[in-house]
Amino acid sequence: MLEETYRELRLPLLRLAFLLTGSRETAEDVVQSAFLSAQPRWHRIDDPPAYLRRSVVNLAKDGQRREYRRRRLLPPEPESVTANPELDETWALVRQLPPKQRAVVVLHYYEDLPLVDIARLLHRPASTVRSDLRRALDRLRKALR
């Protein structure tokens, strides 16, 4: 059952972790750690996909802190990710959002989660999540003008 879930969810979780952390290496670590920490209590987890997604979001926060420290030492090189300049430009701007705003944007626009579910996932008031999203969109709009 665990192995089946791993085969099924590893790739979607890797993608989510990459969008949250901006680092493929950190995304791998985050997803491995999420499964590793779930193993001892696997039989007690009611909703494995939700549990693992929550773990990835929480672990990504820690990964982001490490990435931030690394970025402060070494400014990131501009990276072409999608081979589409317009999408690459938007992605570069999303990467520059503060971690909490970025998490809300990723969970809302990539995972299609309603704000109330994001608030529950991030353990933050729904009103705060709404204002995080509004601020993120304002910032992106200005930058994309």
């Binding site: 993608r15 999608t82 992605w91 999303v94 990723v106």
Partner: peptide
């Protein structure tokens, strides 16, 4: 644009 961007970026991750 955000939906297209995030989906395109995510799709670059291959397991």
């Amino acid at each position: 644009k955000l939906r297209r961007t995030l989906t395109a970026v995510a799709d670059t991750v291959q397991a």
